[in-house]
Design a protein around this nucleic acid. Structure first.
Lengths: 109, 109
DNA sequence: TACAAACATTAGCATTGACTTATGCATCAG
DNA sequence: CTGATGCATAAGTCAATGCTAATGTTTGTA
């Protein structure tokens, strides 16, 4: 069972459309720096930085410093608490939780 | 691929801890009326009603009128857009979420 | 009919949160 | 060393939102 705090941070972070768009772009890019994220985001560099901080605190992304650039990437297990939460509370899935967990274990022990 | 509006409504609705607690309680109860939801929620009946409206508009719950009481229940496919979203954007999760969706299809085609 | 019960809705208030501008801090180029 | 670049942080503003109190609406009951 995922901690309430973890789920809360993830849900809150992904609730905002702009921030969610940033997250989606990071995922699709594999790795991307802040400047590239800013261009086409529709908001200022400051806003993007604040969104990145939120996503990072939620455990959804990780950063890598290289000179003056900071590259962000999605964390593989970032969405895991969300999956666990759905598995735990997903009403008609209750019986299948065991199967799901087994499946996840096989993929990422 | 789930509509942005759908994902947005679901994420926003589940982002609030109080509202998420209400949703979880509805799931665990199978079916529950407003009065029972209010007791132990920590907020007023008005607040609960407003949370219920948000959850309903997000497609997460459905209501059933019986006399003066209104019973709420979780919608089977309410969280489906969230699963779809993860399968579409979750690069690292694509395979395992696909399996999750297969499970869901088996349960509720 | 009149009153109570169950829930929804409205209005108002306080807080949160997303944004911009301005500034700080480190790194690279000259 | 000096200025420019890339990004983070601080401060302030405005809209969104979660809450309560009050009221509305429908249904059951005496």
């Amino acid at each position: 069972m995922p901690s309430t705090a973890s789920i809360d941070a993830i849900m809150r972070s992904l609730a905002d459309p702009t921030r969610r768009a940033v997250f989606e772009r990071i995922i699709q890019s594999g790795e991307i720096n802040v400047g590239d994220l800013v261009s086409g985001s529709g908001v200022t560099q400051s806003a993007v930085s604040q969104h990145l901080r939120s996503l990072k605190r939620a455990g959804l992304i990780a950063d890598r410093w290289q000179g003056r650039n900071v590259f962000y990437r999605a964390k593989p297990k970032g969405l895991a608490p969300l999956v666990d939460w759905m598995s735990h509370y997903g009403i008609f899935w209750r019986e299948r939780v065991a199967n799901l967990r087994t499946l996840l274990k096989e993929i990422d022990p």
